[in-house]
């Protein structure tokens, strides 16, 4: 409940909607989902500014390594596959959630969390490798922008993983109540959104970086 309230940016909103739902059907639900959608759009603007910054300084190598030398596309392909698969498995959880089936919902949610953790593990491995090779964020403008952009996405995935973990616990405690369904729908939107941002990252940063 706390994470959801924080995310929508209105600490008092959750309880207000809960009280509202008793009287007016799903009115509060729609308002929460629309509010969460607008949060995602504002988050997209953060990523837009990070992409713009990366685009502007992406050739500022400062005599340091260029993308072709440091990006391992096989690793990125594996990473991309994990994140895309996690988006697909989350989609598997949602119909079960609609039907109120606790077991399958938790199962697919747990699989999604594991795939997300694998994605994050590979990304941290890549970062550690780059820094150990002297291609850390302080090496050049290109690498500063790279670490900021990809790191911000990774931070979002981390938050998503914490959210998935707390949902797994809360489903066990409360079952698939109406507030739980609403939180899971917001989480679903958040997770799919992160996959969309990653499309931009693997195309613009990795594939295009290796091409030029």
């Amino acid at each position: 409940m706390t994470d959801h309230a924080l995310r929508s940016g209105q600490p008092a909103a959750t309880t207000w909607h809960l009280a509202e739902e008793e009287d007016h059907d799903h009115g509060g639900n729609g308002a929460t989902l629309l509010g969460f959608w607008i949060y995602l759009m504002s988050d997209a603007l953060i990523f837009a500014s990070l992409f713009a910054m990366y685009g502007v300084v992406s050739t500022g190598y400062a005599g340091g390594p260029v993308p072709r030398e440091i990006f391992d596309l096989k690793l990125v392909a594996l990473n991309t596959a994990f994140l895309l698969a996690s988006s697909i498995t989350f989609g598997q959880a949602m119909p079960h959630m609609e039907m109120g089936r606790v077991g399958p919902t938790r199962f697919w949610l747990a699989i999604t969390g594991l795939l997300g953790a694998a994605f994050l593990g590979i990304e941290l491995y890549e970062f550690a490798h780059l820094i150990a090779d002297g291609a850390g964020p302080q090496r050049s403008a290109f690498l500063s922008a790279f670490f900021t952009l990809v790191g911000t996405h990774g931070a979002h995935v981390t938050v998503g993983l914490i959210w998935i973990g707390s949902m797994l616990v809360q489903i066990g405690q409360h079952g698939l109540s109406l507030p739980m369904k609403r939180r899971l729908m917001c989480l679903s939107m958040f997770w799919h959104f992160l996959d969309i941002i990653w499309i931009g990252v693997f195309t613009f940063v990795y594939l295009y970086g290796v091409l030029r």
């Binding site: 739902e21 059907d25 799903h26 639900n29 729609g30 989902l33 609609e98 039907m99 109120g100 109540s177 109406l178 369904k181 609403r182 729908m185």
Partner: peptide
């Protein structure tokens, strides 16, 4: 419950 949620 699920019928309440359905329209959304």
């Amino acid at each position: 419950m699920s019928t309440l949620l359905d329209p959304a």
